[in-house]
Design a protein around this nucleic acid. Structure first.
Length: 460
RNA sequence: GCCCCCAUCGUCUAGAGGCCUAGGACACGGCCCUUUCAAGGCCGAGACAGGGAUUCGAAUUCCCUUGGGGGCACCA
């Protein structure tokens, strides 16, 4: 039987790190097994579901490179759930519940007391006039519910800890546990790969399978992703949505690689592309302990994937990124941009670093993290006026020429080359750290370089 | 309170009874290279939560303790 898996986000927020990893594992498994990957939007909570979040989630999935073969939206399937619930009701496997929110509130934490189970038809008719009932599944208190989890092995729950839970709310919409099962049956899902926080939902869902007379699929509960404090990853841990990392300039390849590495290992290989991950992926490689979200490795992977990109592609990504940041005017000269990217490629770890580390390539208003100490200014200025003349005469402005000329100048004047070159760097870029000074000068161009040196001379 | 899951370096992990003096990667420290910073090369520090039991032999099996996490809604 061919593999069918689904990723079922609810559109109540942006795509979260943990959710994205669940999507990725499902997707990798489907692609590896040549199966089907289904995207199902779980928007039965009419209050909290927002179209914009659905769009945002889809956008982020695409960005990650995750595509789907089938698409469903639960809000389009409401009558199916209702129909099935009615059927269970008719078969006596479920019953109506007229309890109010307030009444239920008092029962909090101790389970439902089955107050509505014994209601007579007459009583129900009376209550029906006041309000609409919800439908609860009848779950026997005897025995236990066992199932095999692919990662954790056999799991067992005593039935008396499973409530007669609501499957259809009084407004006619299904609850999560119910719609999930109905859909997973209809969509012929073979493996349910989802977060470990769903383990405790599983016995409930199995009760539904049982009531419907259907054999449950394979369950694969992947461990949680935790924050630095080991609590479930949430907003207070900082950036937790995929979109935020995209905005920070991480490559989608790095993000995917990082997500895949959390909670699994691939023969000690670390830097992997989507294709390689598909090749190497298997459910056996998933670990059972939770992972702490630590972005140090993400930084490393991002750097590695940037290095591996070819320059044309990387330049295009940088260009798009700059445009997203409203820096369109930095991208107009595509050849220049290409050159800048090419000398910065090996030293940036995110696309944003182009802005942070390379602003001096694009604007005269570049940030300065270093200045020439005032006591050196005078001396440096005297030397510089000489050098300016020499550089101005250069007809070929390239790295090797610049290096030759400047180095011989340093020798002639017996200057401290370390000091002098670093001073030049600071004047030209405002930074202590840049690519090779001569390359930087070449890319910057003769005019821009000389102007900066002259301007500094004038000021000093 | 009840139910469930998890437990190897700071972090992600390898390890399915002897191959483990516990391997890799990130991060960290040192050295080399070097006009700066990365990158690269070499070296280093760093872990089986604790206690029992089984066994000739346990990181690996079992039990307990402890610690951490998750769940107990007409949310998903």
């Amino acid at each position: 039987m061919s593999v069918r898996v689904r990723f079922a986000p609810s559109p109540t927020g942006h795509l979260h790190i943990g959710t994205a990893r669940t999507a990725l594992f499902n997707w990798l498994f489907a692609r590896k097994e040549k199966g089907t990957f289904i995207l199902r939007i779980e928007d039965t909570d009419l209050e909290r579901s927002k179209k914009e979040f659905e769009l945002s989630i889809i956008d982020d999935l695409k960005w990650l490179g995750i595509d789907w073969d089938e698409f469903y939206r639960q809000s389009d399937r409401l009558n199916i759930y209702r129909e099935i619930a009615e059927r269970l009701l008719a078969e006596g496997k479920a019953y109506e519940c007229f309890c109010t929110k307030e009444e239920l509130e008092k029962l909090r934490g101790q389970g439902y007391n089955r107050r509505c189970l014994g209601l007579s038809d007459a009583e129900k008719d009376v209550l029906r006039r006041e309000r609409k009932p919800a439908i609860r599944l009848f779950v026997s208190k005897d025995g236990e519910t066992r199932f095999i989890d692919y990662i954790h092995g056999e799991l067992c729950f005593q039935n008396n800890v499973i409530d007669d839970f609501v499957i259809l709310k009084s407004d006619g919409t299904p609850t999560y546990n119910f719609s999930v099962v109905v859909d997973d049956i209809f969509m012929k899902i073979t493996h349910i790969i989802r977060g470990e926080d769903h383990i405790s939902n599983t016995p409930k869902q199995i009760q539904i399978y049982k009531a419907l007379g259907i054999e449950p699929p394979v369950f694969v509960h992947i461990p949680m992703i935790l924050g630095q404090d080991k609590a479930k990853l949430s907003k207070r841990h900082g950036a937790t949505s995929i979109g935020e990392y995209r905005n920070m300039g991480y490559l989608s390849e790095a993000m995917v690689n990082f997500l895949a590495l959390m909670g699994a290992s691939y023969e000690d290989k670390q830097v992997l592309t989507l294709e390689e991950l598909i090749e190497l992926f298997s459910l056996e490689k998933l670990s059972k302990n939770p992972a702490i979200f630590d972005t140090k490795k993400l930084d490393f992977l991002s750097q590695e994937h940037i290095r591996r990109k070819n320059l044309e592609e990387l330049t295009e990504l940088v260009s798009q990124f700059l445009k997203r940041k409203g820096l369109d005017h930095w991208t107009t000269d595509s050849i220049y941009l290409f050159k800048v990217v090419s000398i910065l490629q090996t030293r940036i770890k995110t696309l944003k670093d182009i802005i942070l580390m390379g602003d001096y390539f694009f604007t005269e208003d570049y940030s300065r993290d270093a200045e020439i100490p005032s006591e050196e200014r005078k001396r440096l200025n005297t030397i510089l006026s000489d050098l300016l003349d020499i550089l101005a005469e250069l007809d070929t402005w390239n790295t090797s020429k610049l290096e030759n000329r400047i180095r011989s100048y340093i020798t002639e004047r017996s200057l401290d080359s370390r000091w002098f070159l670093q001073s030049l760097r600071i004047i030209i870029s405002g930074k202590k750290v840049t690519p090779s000074l001569f390359e930087t000068m070449e890319v910057l161009g003769k005019e821009r370089t000389l102007n900066r040196l002259r301007r500094w001379s004038g000021l000093a």
